[in-house]
């Protein structure tokens, strides 16, 4: 199954650990996981545990406009994309969860 996740809160919020836990478990169960980060969610790229999801095979894309507004640097393996990438995740997944 393809799972899509939207995260709009910064890493201080408990949402981050929930997203990490769900994504890790979903990957272990063999599901595809795609995460879109926007608004303060883009700060999560700087959290080690979160960025390491990429190594577990999770696709992560961020809203480049929000990244630019918040002066967040690029992180390898994470797509500095656009709202179009969010639309693609929403259109292509079987289940979608939002954490805001």
């Amino acid at each position: 199954m393809k799972l899509g996740i939207l995260l709009t809160t910064s890493p201080e919020n408990e949402n981050t650990n929930t997203v990490i836990a769900i994504s890790t478990a979903a990957r272990k169960a063999g599901h595809e996981v795609s995460i879109f980060l926007m608004y303060d969610g883009v700060y999560n790229v700087n959290k080690k545990d979160f960025a390491e999801l990429v190594d577990k095979g999770v696709n992560i894309a961020v809203c480049a406009l929000n990244v630019e507004q918040r002066k967040v640097g690029r992180v390898e393996g994470i797509l500095f994309g656009s709202q179009y990438d969010h639309a693609c995740i929403a259109a292509d997944v079987d289940r979608f969860i939002s954490f805001g």
Partner: peptide, 19 residues
Amino acid sequence: TRRNAEALRMSVGLTLRED
């Protein structure tokens, strides 16, 4: 907060795959 304006901007973006 910019949250609500961002919710609307995101809504515009979500139309981009004809949803």
